[in-house]
Amino acid sequence: MSDVKKFLYVNRRAPYGTIYALESLEVVLIGAAFEQDVSLAFLDDGVFQLTKGQNTDGIGVKNFSPTFRALGDYDVQKLFVERESLEERGLSEDDLIEVVYEDEDDDWEEKPAIRVISRAEMADAMADADVVLSF
């Protein structure tokens, strides 16, 4: 394995209308095994992927929302959500599911993986990545 790279997965699309959100998550789960520095970015309609209370019983499509909560178990610790994108859509952090990870540097304390950040901070996160995968 070569040096660790910073992978940023950019999610800008809502779930269920298209498969991109689900298949993006599948890449993240596989990618977690490669021990790279992984971050997920949710902006524009991508913030809808993380909303609470998704129930797909009536549309015949698998609800993959619970899988996000498992990301912490895969040691994915950084889910950046853009505040402006939330606000433009009438959402706040309270509308989002909880994702936690155990911080090995802090006695395995459970910490929130979702971090609501500003648009400027999102731009910084993008400019900090080595590899940007957009879905």
Partner: peptide, 16 residues
């Protein structure tokens, strides 16, 4: 020219 731009910049980000 597209290829040159990819090489010149450190990363490429597609806004799909």
């Amino acid at each position: 020219g597209f290829v040159d731009l990819v090489a010149k910049h450190d990363r490429t980000q597609s806004w799909l």
